[in-house]
């Protein structure tokens, strides 16, 4: 594998991990808002207790991703910076308010309600904006010569493909998070919440699949190069569909036990993550060699070889130290969170 390919794989890996973590985070915010009036189901409480511990790590990933892009592909920074200045600034502002109120609401109980609405609304808007980055990179609306490029916002916002992606992003956020929350509430023996989230997953899942189809159709007319590229891997696209079906079956499958809850959300979650992995791999491979079509390719953007080796070495050393640490922390933390949740339930 060439260095540039290795580097873009690393970036892709970051984006994938971020997409999963962010979906959980943002979706949980939205569901917490949706069920704020249904106190007896605990659905909001479950979503909120999921929300708080994840944001800091997720946030670090935003920063890590940005750093990875400019340290591995500095030649792409100018074009990316110009293309993304408006959407990225909007995302930053929303993220900033969201994280701050998440933190403040731990200290000021009055904020709790405001927080629920802030994180609920941003939980819907931010994924829509985030996923817009993809159409910006593949639709070819970044116009002009190097040094004074500009994103044609008019073309972007009149493109069906952009809206298809937005819809897809929002729905997949809701789908993945409702799946996760149903798994989480099942673990916590919260039957009512579990039923609600399972139902949500059953609704958003098929809708997401429809959006995925619309994405493909609009791609075919608006970014045919990408569509053709993805179709070269149509076998893998089928695999991804199969995993989607597996997760559907796991949700509907009766669960034979003393409890009255049905479905195996854990399997559904795993199947969907595999589906995402396969799907985004197909998209990513077809996107190559372009970072921003047609202005920047991975080769034209790639960093200096000496820098690459140094940066890569820090990744390896850093991960070797941090991954076990985080795993350990996470397992203690999740246990603690569950214990606290139970304790609060008992005192209520």
């Amino acid at each position: 594998m060439s260095d540039a390919l290795l580097a873009i794989t690393l970036v892709w890996g970051f984006i994938f991990l971020y997409a999963i973590m962010a979906s959980m985070d943002f979706g949980a915010g939205f569901w917490a808002m949706t069920y704020i009036k249904k106190e007896e189901t605990n659905a909001t409480k479950i979503a909120n207790s999921y929300l708080s511990p994840t944001w800091e790590v997720t946030n670090t990933f935003v920063v890590g991703l940005v750093i990875a892009i400019y340290s591995l592909f500095p030649g792409a920074v100018f074009t990316i910076g110009v293309a993304l200045i408006v959407p990225a600034s909007l995302i930053l502002v929303l993220l900033c308010i969201r994280s701050a109120f998440l933190v403040f609401s731990h200290s000021v109980d009055k904020y709790e309600k405001a927080l629920t609405y802030i994180s609920g609304l941003t939980g819907l808007i931010i994924p829509g904006l985030l996923i817009s980055v993809l159409p910006i990179t593949h639709l070819g609306f970044v116009e002009g010569m190097r040094g004074n490029e500009e994103l044609n916002l008019f073309k972007l916002f009149t493109s069906p493909n952009e809206y298809a992606f937005m819809g897809f992003g929002i729905l997949s956020t809701l789908f993945l998070s409702s799946l996760l929350l149903s798994d989480y509430s099942k673990q916590a023996d919260e039957t009512k919440a579990y039923k609600i989230y399972r139902r949500d997953a059953m609704i958003t899942g098929p809708l997401m699949l429809v959006m995925a189809m619309i994405v493909m159709i609009t791609l075919k007319s608006e970014a045919n190069w990408l569509y053709e590229g993805m179709m070269k891997n149509s076998a893998l696209l089928l695999v991804s569909l199969v995993f989607f079906i597996i997760s559907g079956v796991a949700l509907y499958l009766p669960y034979f036990s003393k409890r009255e809850v049905k479905g195996m959300p854990r399997i559904a979650v795993i199947a969907i993550i595999i589906q995402y992995l396969v799907g985004s791999y197909v998209y990513g491979i077809a996107h190559l060699p372009y970072i921003i079509y047609p202005n920047v390719t991975i080769l034209s953007g790639f960093t200096d070889p000496t820098s690459f080796r140094a940066v890569f070495a820090t990744y390896i050393v850093g991960f070797a130290i941090l991954v076990p640490g985080f795993y350990y922390f996470w397992s203690i933390f999740m246990k603690d969170q569950r214990r606290k949740f139970k304790r609060r339930q008992m005192t209520n």
Binding site: Y70, A88, A310, V311
Partner: peptide, 20 residues
């Protein structure tokens, strides 16, 4: 990177380690 892309291009090539 949004406001100073020309600067970050150089930083990315030469001085990425501290950020990393």
């Amino acid at each position: 990177s949004l406001l100073w892309p020309g600067f970050m291009e150089v930083i990315g090539r030469v001085m990425a380690l501290p950020f990393q």
